[in-house]
Design a protein around this nucleic acid. Structure first.
Lengths: 419, 419
DNA sequence: AGCAGTTAGTTTGTACCTCGCACAAACTTA
DNA sequence: TAAGTTTGTGCGAGGTACAAACTAACTGCT
């Protein structure tokens, strides 16, 4: 599957090959900013400003970035000609007098992004427009213990089905996967619940079949980017996404960049220790955060406390039952919130990001759960004067946030160059 | 106190005033890289490469950074003329044939950096050469509960004494301080053991008196920069510094940059929780890492176990007594190492930096303590294939590492622009 | 000794980017 | 209708990195 008509400008490094050439034999630890890279960087930042702030005029963008208006014109003009951006009609502005500003926004028909969400047993592929719209969703299932070839065939088939509905070449393909991912090498290291994926060099495989830039990252990082793009993290420079469910995970947005850690292994929070010599964890260690703040703990406690249908209890149900007056539910919910809070406290003491977006089970508990957790965090953290800690939930269907995030991963990896 | 003869080129933003002008009314979250900033950025990176790798020829630097040789010439030539760098004699190289390379290195007589280490009751000021040499150390004491004016007078006096021995204007002044620091605003928030410092806007005060760029940061961050500059972190792009003693603290070097967190509050690791509902901490919470891995814990346990002179026990002494065959010392040392390891494990699970430099009490235990801790970390961390975790100690007199780090803070804040 | 080959560093010209200035377009206010 | 304001656009200036071509200095072979 090949596409034509690449845009006349570059959004950054468009293919891994280009990247290798650009980096050359640069084995050192210094990278200078080259003249040509500068253009790509600034183009990327202007686009990001448009993501973050919505439609803006050239003059607004110039003010926002502290640069000359002419600079913005020079950057956006080719993008308008290339139909990536659209110049809207002059809108009635709030300022008096003067030529009315013409807002710039993303062309809904601009090149889209391929996105894949890979969870044990299921593949979800789609196209994501720069406006965040999700199109051409195709799903497939695979045998987690089956044959690699069969999985690759299923993967290729759904992705082809989704991508073929694009009119112009997508900018790239982003894959969000459960499990342990090496995002540098582009391989899946291990997925406990889907051994067929173990060691799969998925990026190389997809790159070869689709001739597009491909990025893979783990699920929480996709949620983070989804938050940043169209969720509560929009426009923020520092925040963390935290996922709770059967397992716990997290990802960080630091100083305007997605944090990966070496080989993309940052954010494996589930196995940070909050209880030395505590309960045994799946990983073989004791007292991991996952042993006190994930669903298995919640359900075990529900059994112990004699709650109704304890094996299927969720945060959402606890909130509902609390509202209906169940003291037992309220008590368990509070303990759950407190246990979740400990992990956030440790993050806060370490990175001091001040802003946390919750996903997964606790997100089902909505604002009430978030507020409960926030209160525990406030109590447990060492306060600094004037410091406010924000805890929000992203309740949008998880699949959508992760898919948007997977798409955003491609984009951000090509916009935010490592400089 | 004023200096003359500024260099003809700029190493970045030389004064806060310039910075404000440069940022303009940029209240947004986007910053484009301007053409002129590009030069400053690359100049800074070349200098950093020289720090990291020691004397290098232009050609080597070009290869290291993946840029053209002519670019390096253009960058270093003004610095040589300005006597910041010196071009060494052609040295016999290992390659056969060709014109011999001429190494570039820092002029020991180049402008130096002012550095201050502020601990409860004591002030230490000095000059630090770009070669790392520490000169003109002057010390003073102050009453931690005394008068603010008296403190400022003492501070100004020692710093003036140190700076007056410089022949050219220092690049700036770096302050490393105990306690909670707001490095954005340049103020000391609180120092538990020195109330006189509470709320002191030290950066503004020093900037006014010395007309130089001034940077303040907390003690562990200075240690980090000291490590990065002349310690085990030299040339590394990702590592953490961890300080243990009466209190615990840390700082991170991430992707080639010092991590600060909002208002410089990142790295307050002592109060991350490793034992839910554990022992009561000074901060009023329970189960902080500080309650199980700092000196007070160690000494309390030494008392409990009946070790000799338990109130003055240190890691160094435990190592010595272990070597001499004391089983009790060996057992306590191992438990101490394990407790320290938990904090490092949590860092590793969160940020995945893979490299840790220890300071303070555990550093006194030398390689033996480091190896013990490393073994515990290896056992407690979720291993990824091929992942190696390095734990080292920086045993150099703490004052020196912190002072060098304080100096480095100024330099790095002026070299590594936020771009 | 002399020449080819190799590497270091410089000179020169080119391409690219941002900025400041001047100006037209479009709108408001008096 | 005139003055004032804001947006957006040419155009030249200044600064930066790069490529090509050159000189300088050294090695190894004949």
């Amino acid at each position: 599957m090949k596409f034509e008509s690449q845009p006349s400008y570059s959004l950054g490094q468009r293919t891994p090959a280009t990247r290798e050439v650009a980096a050359g034999e640069n084995s050192g630890n210094v990278t200078l900013v080259s003249q040509s890279a500068l253009g790509a960087i600034n183009r990327g930042r202007v686009l990001q400003a448009l993501y973050d702030n919505g439609p803006k005029s050239r003059a607004d963008l110039a003010r926002l970035a502290g640069v000359n208006r002419t600079t913005i014109t020079g950057i956006v003009q080719p993008m308008i000609e290339d139909q990536l951006l659209i110049e809207g009609d002059a809108s009635p502005s709030d300022v008096k007098g003067g030529k009315p500003a013409r807002p710039l926004y993303f062309n809904p028909d601009a090149p889209m992004l391929g996105a894949v969400l890979l969870l044990p047993g299921t593949i979800q592929s789609c196209l994501v427009a720069l406006t965040g719209e999700i199109k051409a969703v195709t799903k497939a299932e695979f045998d987690p213990h089956g044959d690699t070839e069969a999985f690759i065939a299923a993967m290729t088939k759904t992705l082809t089905a989704a991508l073929s509905q694009a009119q112009r070449a997508p900018f790239g393909i982003g894959v969000a996967s459960a499990g342990m991912i090496d995002s540098d090498k582009g391989t899946i290291l291990t997925v406990n619940l889907a051994p067929v994926l173990t060691g799969l060099p998925l990026v190389a495989i997809l790159q070869e079949r689709f001739s597009l830039p491909v990025v893979i990252d783990h699920h929480p990082r996709a949620l983070l980017v989804g938050d940043r793009w169209f969720g509560p993290g929009r426009g923020q420079q520092n925040f963390a996404a935290v996922y709770t469910g059967e397992v716990l995970g997290g990802a960080f947005f630091i100083d305007g960049k997605v944090y990966r850690g070496l080989a993309g292994s940052g954010g494996e929070l589930g196995h940070s220790v909050v209880q030395i010599d505590g309960a045994l964890c799946n990983c073989g260690k004791h007292g991991c955060w996952e042993t006190v703040a994930a669903l298995p703990w919640l359900r075990k406690e529900a059994v112990r406390m004699g709650l109704p249908h304890p094996r299927s209890v969720t945060c959402a149900r606890l909130v509902k039952e609390t509202d209906e007056g169940s003291n037992a539910a309220e008590e368990l919910l509070d303990r759950y919130a407190r246990n979740v809070a400990f992990g956030i406290v440790n993050l806060q003491q370490t990175l001091s990001l001040n802003s946390y977006v919750l996903h997964g089970d606790v997100a089902g508990g909505g604002m009430k759960a978030a507020e409960l957790i926030r209160r525990h965090v406030e109590q447990l953290v060492v306060k600094r004067p004037g410091q406010e800690i924000s805890i929000t939930v992203n309740g949008i269907g998880e699949g959508h946030t992760a898919l948007r995030g997977a798409a955003g991963l491609v984009l951000s990896s090509h916009l935010k160059l490592v400089i």
